[in-house]
Nucleic acid binder design. Structure first.
Lengths: 229, 229
DNA sequence: AACAAAACCTGACAAATATCATGTTTCCTT
DNA sequence: AAGGAAACATGATATTTGTCAGGTTTTGTT
């Protein structure tokens, strides 16, 4: 397995691609590889992060606990993404928890290296800024969806999102399998409501399930539903 | 009125404070002052922005149109804040519209100057990054509020927000007066529901109104409500 | 001051969603 | 393979919220 950041493909997808050779060498020398099993927490809301987590493999859910005790999943972080950036930049405790959705492998990069590069290399800083600008736009979109779309629309959208971002296997099953509870927490609804809607989608022939694995059988109808038809 | 950016107090509150003398001179020479009356649009969703808007005075609402034709207000931008940054950085059309809530005065700064400084001055870029990181955290909080709190809680929270951020006048009236419709669009609910909740708050003695001006008469109860008591 | 337009308000009702209770299936551990 | 825990599922019901329809008040303009 590749252990030098300079040669890591994952890096191509995140802001580390704007680093120069020396910087990458520093990162490579300081980074620590960590593995987490499905369900384990990488870090918890309120924790001080001593670095960022560059995802090599697997998916993590970034969530925030609400006053009523429910987790709201704000984002799913995948191979190539960097977690914990925000907290490191503003030097505050993180506002989100990260939990492995499946087995996850990350490279932990100490914050000093990141902050140092930011002061010295404007291209890197700008690249981080672009990524954050992108995240902010996505967050705006989520806000609008949450407040203006029905739960049914949001569930439909979640499945389309899973298909578009993680794809399907040979049989057509979604590559990323989330529990009903996780889907409910993405969508911001009660688990029972989420299950009920999935049942309805099955009855209408939009979805098929086998255990917890899911096939989208009528993508068009789901899209129309999201659009409000 | 002060027209040189170097001496502008407003700047102290935004990322322009990280600019050096020369950069500020450039900004100052290139900037154009613009005024907008209450209700006028500074820019519209989908528009290409040729620069950023530094708010000198007044408040604007940043909103996004949803599929069902309702505006969702994502943020209120006040004196000292910079609008349009995100779109300029990623060089995409803006995802938000900006409309003046009261009479607004801004300085328009051409994007070339901003982008140029970002490439040359890492301190400035980092400062912009910090502001964006802050906005992103706030957006995360809004997402959680939207999905996990009731409309009543969100309305209560909106009033507390207005008090904390814009203060009250000598008589105790909130300095920033929003229409019921605007409040509904901040909170993500129907205007009628918003009005009903305000009426309820008045009956319970949490609020008093005079025309569209509002006094919070029982802040504690509103806070408890938000916390879920 | 008169008028129109916009904003505000309320009631009645319908729809969406949460909650509680309970049963079934799946999955993991031994 | 058995047992138990967790996840999934569904019904009954209560609550929340949206919608429509009709008012009243406020505001701005002539």
């Amino acid at each position: 397995m590749e252990t030098r950041c300079e040669n890591c493909i994952v890096r191509k997808f995140n802001s580390l691609r704007a680093m120069n050779k020396e910087e990458l060498k520093q990162v490579s020398d300081a980074k620590v590889s960590k593995k987490f099993k499905k369900g384990e927490a990488l870090f918890e809301e309120g924790e001080k992060l001593n670095g960022v987590y560059c995802v090599r493999d697997g998916v993590s859910k970034l969530s925030k606990l609400s006053a009523n005790g429910k987790d709201q999943i704000v984002k799913l972080a995948t191979t190539g993404e960097v977690m914990g950036q925000r907290a490191v930049i503003v030097e505050e405790p993180t506002n989100l928890s990260a939990v492995a959705v499946n087995d996850v492998e990350v490279c932990f990069v100490p914050k000093e290296i990141i902050l140092d590069s930011m002061h010295k290399n404007p291209d890197f800083t700008l690249e981080v800024l672009r990524h954050m600008a992108h995240d902010l736009k996505e967050a705006d979109d989520v806000i609008v969806n949450m407040s203006q779309k029905t739960v049914k629309q949001r569930v439909a959208e979640a499945f389309l999102y899973l298909k578009n971002n993680y794809g399907v296997d040979e049989e057509g099953f979604l590559n990323l399998t989330l529990s009903r509870e996780d889907i409910a927490n993405v969508v911001g609804t009660a688990t029972e409501s989420c299950i009920r809607i999935i049942s309805e989608f099955k009855k209408k022939g939009y979805l098929k399930t086998s255990g917890k694995r899911i096939i989208i059988t009528n993508e068009k109808e789901l899209q129309d539903l999201v659009k409000g038809f």
